[in-house]
C-alpha cells in the first residue's frame, strides 16, 4: 500500500509567488514591475503602511495613497545563508533589511556587494531586476 504522501511529489511553489497573494499588495508589485518604488501611506494621518494593508494601524482609516519614495536608505541588519533552504536560491547568498530614508524597512537582496562587505549603516539605493515581462523584484546596491 502506498500512501498519499509518497504517491505525490511535494509541490514547492516558487517563493516569488508569495508576493502577490493579497489584494492590498497589488499596486505595490505593479509599480515594482514598472521599476518604480512606491509605498502605501494613510491619506488621513500620513502614517506609512508596510506591508500594505487595507486599514491604517494608527488611525483605522481605510483611505490610502501610493507615494513614490527615494529608494535610498541604509542597511539596518542582514543575514547570510551558507546553505540554501530552497532550490530557487543558490547559496551562499545574503538578505538585507534596508531602512529607507522615509522610515519604512524592506527586506531584499544586495546587488554587487559581497557578503563579507556588508555592514550595518551602509548607504544603499534601489535597483530593479526583471523576473518576467510584468514582474520584477526590488534589490539594493551601494549608493552612488
Amino acid at each position: 500500500m502506498t500512501t498519499q504522501a509518497d504517491s505525490e511529489a511535494p509541490v514547492i511553489p516558487h517563493p516569488a509567488l508569495w508576493a502577490v497573494l493579497y489584494r492590498s499588495s497589488t499596486p505595490f508589485w505593479e509599480a515594482v514591475g514598472r521599476h518604480e518604488l512606491t509605498l502605501q501611506r494613510c491619506s488621513d494621518c500620513k502614517t506609512w503602511r508596510m506591508p500594505p494593508r487595507p486599514m491604517c494601524p494608527r488611525c483605522q482609516s481605510a483611505e490610502s495613497e501610493w507615494v513614490p519614495v527615494s529608494g535610498r536608505g541604509t542597511i539596518h541588519s542582514w543575514v547570510t545563508y551558507p546553505e540554501s533552504p530552497h532550490p530557487a536560491f543558490e547559496a551562499p547568498y545574503a538578505v538585507i533589511l534596508v531602512e529607507l530614508d522615509e522610515g519604512p524597512r524592506l527586506v531584499s537582496n544586495p546587488v554587487g556587494i559581497a557578503p563579507d562587505e556588508l555592514e550595518i549603516g551602509m548607504p544603499v539605493e534601489v535597483v530593479f531586476e526583471d523576473v518576467s515581462d510584468d514582474f520584477a523584484l526590488y534589490k539594493f546596491q551601494r549608493a552612488g
Binding site: P15, W18, A19, Y22, P85, V107, N109
Partner: peptide
C-alpha cells in the same frame, strides 16, 4: 500577508 515581501528574496527560515 507579510511573507510576500520576504520569500521572493530567499528569506525563508
Amino acid at each position: 500577508l507579510h511573507y510576500g515581501y520576504y520569500f521572493p528574496y530567499g528569506f525563508l527560515t
